[in-house]
Write a protein that binds this DNA or RNA. Sequence first.
DNA 1: GTAGAGGTTGACGTTGCGTCAAGGTCAACC
DNA 2: GGTTGACCTTGACGCAACGTCAACCTCTAC
Lengths: 253, 253
Amino acid sequence: MSWSIVEVARHAGVSSRTLRHYDDVGLVPPAYVGANGYRYYDEEALLRLQEVLLLRELGLPLDAIRRILDGTSDRTAVLREHHSALLAERDRLDRLAATVRRTIEMREGGDHMGPEELFDGFDADKQRQYEAELVDRFGPDAQEKIDESWRRVGAMTKADAVRIQADLAARDAEYSALLDAGVAPDDPRAQQVTAGHYAWVCQFWTPSAEAFAGLGDLYVDSPDFHARYDAVRPGLAEYVRDAMAAYAIGTLA
Amino acid sequence: MSWSIVEVARHAGVSSRTLRHYDDVGLVPPAYVGANGYRYYDEEALLRLQEVLLLRELGLPLDAIRRILDGTSDRTAVLREHHSALLAERDRLDRLAATVRRTIEMREGGDHMGPEELFDGFDADKQRQYEAELVDRFGPDAQEKIDESWRRVGAMTKADAVRIQADLAARDAEYSALLDAGVAPDDPRAQQVTAGHYAWVCQFWTPSAEAFAGLGDLYVDSPDFHARYDAVRPGLAEYVRDAMAAYAIGTLA
DNA sequence: GTAGAGGTTGACGTTGCGTCAAGGTCAACC
DNA sequence: GGTTGACCTTGACGCAACGTCAACCTCTAC
């Protein structure tokens, strides 16, 4: 016995378009094509279709389904791999949802402060930008560092912020004086200031050597950071970057 | 100051193809196009790009990003909605992973039995097919019922299975006799048999009226079930379906 | 013959690019 | 000026799994 495409589609709960697609890709061919050009399906084809629909329901791609049904892949192995992929994707979405939630909370404000309040003129969105840049540059590990910095910042008070800002301003001045005096960025005097700078950053997160040097790059590459340093003194962003790079190589590595 | 597309791409960590795409869709236009036809980006364009990349990192579609940046959508509202969608998708993947895991376990066997052992000639894959069909027909709520049936079946013994199979065979014979005697499916005599049938099904799961009638449909629509009933007596599948439908309307609804 | 349901092929669309072809532009170097 | 290699353009096809639509043929009942 055989059925037309619309009969099969109705019975199987799919569209005739889907069935034609499956025929086109060789996944579920009809039993035969009539003289009228119509597709007719028999019971064997229906059973194969049921198998396909079941596996598709599990989220497997059509190509994987074909390999299973044609016996070129082991069904259990494919399902295991798929299971792992599903768990990984679920975890990724979980983390992403947490990131979005935190972004929402940042925008709505709260009692605790964020690092943006430690940098004049920066807002939550820009901070997010720099975090994304860090992750882009150093890979997903950087996200852990960023999360760590949020925890530390979350524990700070306004008084802490005032002290940290004063500390930052003082270091700007120190770097600027060294630049004026023609002290090379890798000179011990400059490196002493950079050690303080490093300690300052460690209030938020503990960068590796590479990350610390990368942070210096960010000061130069980012228009906001660059403008901020140049407002203190032209060329300061590059100077600080070079001092940080030297410190990363000479002390942190 | 302005930068060429490759300079921007390198700095931002995206491809020039991406930048051209963003220009094409009006999301991040360059500051100007030179006489040579090249795109040049200024700081404003870079900042907009950073915003785009940040929001894309959060998983937002480009169209949503555009609406946010153009001020036609409220950023927080969009993020809230996106957050909900992410959680929903995460949950869906979680459930799907659990289904896949269970499918794997079924294929690897175990000590406990499945309903397929209660229906001669059915195997794990076909059972999965029918579960998928039930979910398709009645929505995700059916999955809970299926899960419930697995728990009940898991607690059964082989002796239970023998009794249940004998019970099933007896009911087949009863339905067949009624059909032979020309008793209408909604006749009280037939409905009495169907009451027993319903109780039989309730050993596995407790169907709603709609689901019970749907199960009857499944007996007719599914080639395997249909063949099984027809092996007892031609036309029996339809008869049972009609009896079940009458019982669903007259007693369960 | 007509009307309506059913069926075909062909083609475009979806989202966000990756890849490639063909050809022009730029800058450094000889 | 010519050459080379990097850079840049537009145009186009591909990806995965169909949904949608147009144009036209087929089937069945009236």
